[in-house]
Nucleic acid binder design. Structure first.
Lengths: 145, 145
DNA sequence: CTTGACCTTCCCATAATGGGAGGGTTTACC
DNA sequence: GGTAAACCCTCCCATTATGGGAAGGTCAAG
């Protein structure tokens, strides 16, 4: 258990899940999901069973949302969160994760770009009129290997 | 039912699903799946219930495999197959589908590229040493909107 | 004290596969 | 003819990261 695990401080804010969603851009559904898969710690509950979120929780959710928008998967975000909370992290570790992710993104881009190139090449040779002859569709008949 | 629906011709080849898979690069699992979702017509069966595939079926599977490798989704491939089999298609229709798909691919590429750019920008400012300070992780704390 | 806007959990659905169990078939070989 | 390996079959479950919706409890305003 980390030093940050149980803060005796009273939370300044206490939002319910809907307010937290509005404040962070993470839908209520997603917040519950993140809790379920253990990405975030279980939120506190009111007597009635409602979750409540403090500044700290909102901060975490915003962090997740940011990472999400940069295309990080849940497992990767989990790693990033661990580093984020680790006072003794080295920036080298963070940079390495980021670089690995960039490499994956660029690989994906290359694949997509290759598809685009092939399709544009085929399209270029297609008359695009009322006749049925079409190099695009003909190109699909070749060896798919 | 189209003119091509029921061919009285005897099939020259009669492969079972494993051979068809090896011949087309489409795994047996995927062939069954394509049949199940109605992308391809149900394969003929032997008395024992084994599927068998003729040249025509292999041709179709190769077509699907090619389209798949160009990133087309199942519904789109379904459209492409319909055009492929339509003797009265216009190449304009094919070209339009291809162009729409290219547009989607390029949109996806742009999103991924934007992620890459942001991450590279942040990474560039990260010392990547033993110190914990890291603009990458700090960048995740900002407004995720 | 009712009504509507919340919240809760639970189950289902998505896209396009892969994995595997449980059970029949075919093939090759002795 | 029998046996074992290599097929095939049909189900069911898992994946990723969410959304939708039902059934039911709760809170706030009027």
């Amino acid at each position: 258990m980390g030093w940050w695990g149980d803060w005796p401080h009273a939370e300044e804010t206490a939002m319910n899940i809907g307010q937290a969603a509005a404040a962070t851009g993470v839908t209520a559904k997603r917040i519950r999901y993140y809790e379920q898969i253990g990405l975030i710690e279980p939120a506190g509950r009111t007597d009635a069973g409602y979750r409540h979120f403090g500044e700290r929780d909102l901060h975490t959710l915003r962090f997740i949302q940011s990472a999400r928008r940069l295309g990080f998967s849940m497992p990767k975000i989990s790693n990033l969160l661990a580093l984020w909370r680790d006072q003794n992290r080295s920036s080298a570790d963070v940079k390495r994760l980021a670089k690995e992710h960039v490499a994956e993104l660029e690989q994906k881009i290359a694949e997509l770009q290759s598809m685009v190139d092939t399709l544009k090449h085929l399209s270029h040779k297609c008359s695009g009129d009322a006749r049925p002859d079409c190099p695009i569709i003909a190109g699909f008949e070749g060896d798919p290997s």
